[in-house]
Design a protein around this nucleic acid. Structure first.
Lengths: 322, 322
DNA sequence: GCTAGACCTGTAACCGGTTACAGCGGTTGT
DNA sequence: ACAACCGCTGTAACCGGTTACAGGTCTAGC
């Protein structure tokens, strides 16, 4: 039977035909569970991410998905809601389900929980993780570099009073983007004014609120670099609401280059993150480590670079005061 | 063992402790595959959809996901790319993997393929399917009603020359929305001008191209109802590009109410589709039919209604000509 | 003509759980 | 004091495949 369906061993003509007839007659459907039990391979990858609703993720999921399918793998989607407990319970569930590998984006678990999981030996790769996961390759974006690019772009346009709406406090991504922003400022000999920095959380609401707060505190600024595109969209809405034009009065630059960034009004200038490629790459190195007999062959980490995409939301500093 | 981990039968105190110690000492991890082999339940749902990248889907996925998790199910995501062959091969793969149930959005498979799959008896529910799937409950939106609502809104604002950028030709969804558009026109005694109808495909590009085509052909219109929000966003970009203001010169209404509709400029008036709830509901009836011993208890179809969400992209007809 | 080897087929053990059933000690009722 | 019964524990069969191994034919070589 096994020999037949998998064409593993040569089967003489007559026998082959007989088996085939039996297969048809009985309506035989192979059972992958039984197979997995003995082969110990489920050809299933798990993808853990905080929330599929974040427009940043679908492209990544697609990359993972297509790469997986090409090699006959299937992907299990898990929404962690950025909750460490959910993450941990998922991890436990996934090893119960015997997935062949796990791919996680933005884990928030703390070290003790990781320690508990790490020894299980399930191949693991993380995307943009926040903390150290032993022996798991990491694929990530150079957030610092990207943020520097964004800020430099604004500086090149003549802006000096550049505000920054950050991502959620405590996330490494937020810190790195903030660091890039500061680095660019310092390099241009602009002293960073801490009043120009407001904490957000990567949502439109936070972008909107961030601008309102800056306006309320009456700190003058002519440009804003938001932690991501969603926040930039919220920021533009808030600016418009207060009668400020983008980019004439205030330039806005985001981060991620989500699909819709090209269709806002004005179209959003941003830092493009090669999301699809990152997902694809991550899935591929994961499947590579699954296939390899020696798990010791550590795959190197990989960092992708962001790219500046100039659209209509940024413009040169105007002569007058804001 | 089984008795212990599942607390199925009473276990005397002493034995319980001994087992627990052994579990710890040996680092025992239960194997769900072996369990599934005998119980014939994998606690896995599959969700087939065309392309996760379409902003309409993430909310739906989230609904499915959360509902599934609440009952201890896990979801397998499959991108069919709207390709009948991919759909069929996925279906085959899924029954190999012994998923407990399948949830499909917008299948494009033709009847013979369905016939081949149907007898397998895997619980199935479809969302917005295009063709008949025997004995599978269907959850869908009343697209016709929603489109009517949208068109009526424009009519109520005084518009009479209302264009429509449709969805992909051949999709039932497109036809139903078109039918709703026509029904509203007829009810208001406006004769539908076929030159005002242009075929799109639910993308920004199509919305953009649709407007350009209308403008090029110089058919006067003061309002546009696009097949979905993405197309509306593209349409607004095209209008702006040609110096037309929204909503002063042309009103635009979309369909779906994707997350970003509230943040376009102007914010998009649209028909809200309760995507999250639909996903949740679909997952729930699927799990219900899995649990029920008698598969004969057909769950009734369910149709959700769209709701008009008025934002800034529609306004009253201005006095002058367009 | 006989033996070695190649090649195919049948058989049985095994993957790691669940479950039906048998067995055993202890308690209760009379 | 004995039988009936109850509750817990041990055992073995089974889920549906894969795989190692032991035959059994058939051909080829000497």
């Amino acid at each position: 039977m096994s020999r037949f369906v998998n064409a593993a061993a040569p089967v003489a003509g007559g026998t082959g035909q007989r088996v085939e007839m039996a297969v048809r007659a009985l309506g035989y459907r192979p059972n992958g569970i039984a197979r997995s039990l003995v082969t110990k391979a489920t050809h299933t990858l798990a993808l853990l991410l905080p929330d599929i609703t974040n427009p940043f993720f679908p492209d990544l999921v697609k990359g993972v998905q297509l790469a997986a399918n090409e090699r006959g793998y299937v992907v299990l989607l898990c929404s962690t809601l950025s909750d460490a407990l959910t993450e941990e319970s998922y991890l436990k569930l996934l090893q119960l389900k015997q997935v062949d590998g796990i791919l996680a984006v933005g884990l928030t678990m703390r070290r003790p929980q990781i320690k508990r999981f790490a020894p299980t030996g399930v191949p693991f790769v993380s995307l943009d993780r926040d903390i150290d996961f032993p022996d798991a390759p990491l694929v990530r974006l150079d957030h610092r570099g990207g943020a520097r690019l964004a800020t430099q772009h604004l500086i090149a346009l003549g802006h000096r009073a550049i505000a920054h709406v950050t991502g959620p406090a405590g996330l490494r991504v937020s810190r790195e983007r903030l660091a890039g922003y500061r680095a660019a400022l310092t390099a241009a000999r602009i002293t960073a004014d801490s009043r120009l920095r407001v904490t957000g959380d990567f949502t439109e609401e936070a972008g909107y609120a961030g601008i309102e707060r800056l306006l309320m505190e009456a700190v003058p600024f002519t440009a804003v670099f938001t932690g991501n595109d969603l926040a930039a969209i919220g920021a533009m809405a808030a600016l418009k609401r207060h009668g400020l034009r983008v980019p004439e009065d205030v330039s806005v630059i985001g981060f991620d280059d989500i699909h819709l960034a090209a269709y806002t009004s004005p179209p959003l200038t941003t830092i493009r993150q090669p999301t699809y490629e990152m997902g694809r790459h991550a899935a591929e190195i994961l499947m590579d480590t699954i296939g390899s007999v020696s798990p010791k062959r550590r795959v190197a980490n990989r960092v992708f670079e962001g790219r500046l995409v100039v659209r209509g939301s940024t413009g040169p500093l105007r002569g007058g005061e804001q």
